[in-house]
Amino acid sequence: MLIKTIFSGFGGQGVLMMGFSLAQSAMNKGYQVTYLPAYGAEVRGGTANCTIAVGDEEIASPVASEPDYLVVMNSPSLTTFQNKIISGGTIFLNSSIIEARPSRKDVRVYAIPCGDIAQELGNIRAANIVMMGTFIKITKILPAEDYLKSIETIMGGKKKSVTEINRKAFAIGFDFVKN
């Protein structure tokens, strides 16, 4: 198994956090992982993206020329990456702010209003965790509980209320879609 995912969005949407938490939890689960952030001039001007590879053997290239999954949190990211994804792959998009839909017919698309859901929960910053709920449910890369445990370790010092919102946000995202 070798799964490559690109997470992309505005800086501040927690895009790198999504990738890092996936890599961290997959590592804890015993998988080989790589995390490759975009850097330098390409992340100036407010966009951010990272590529995560999860595998059960040594990962050759951390670059994804044809990612299996694409998680896009804003419109420019969809434009940039939708044509890279492998045929038969899956796109997760933040439908709270992305109006367009991918033109490709050979990919599955999940449109999650994760911004709105997070807003209703009282913290727009939890939008990325809502999305991760859906992502984990559909991709089944690892069990939900393992992911949640990792994210709590990563958030370590944060207040209990943050942990609770994260759990709720994750659960809503998870239940938003059917298998």
């Binding site: 890092f20 890599a23 080989q32 992982v33 790589t34 995390y35 490759l36 952030p37 850097y39 990962i59």
Partner: peptide
């Protein structure tokens, strides 16, 4: 190289 520097691995 830049990829080794930027990349995270366990």
């Amino acid at each position: 190289d830049g990829m080794m520097g930027q990349m995270m691995e366990p």
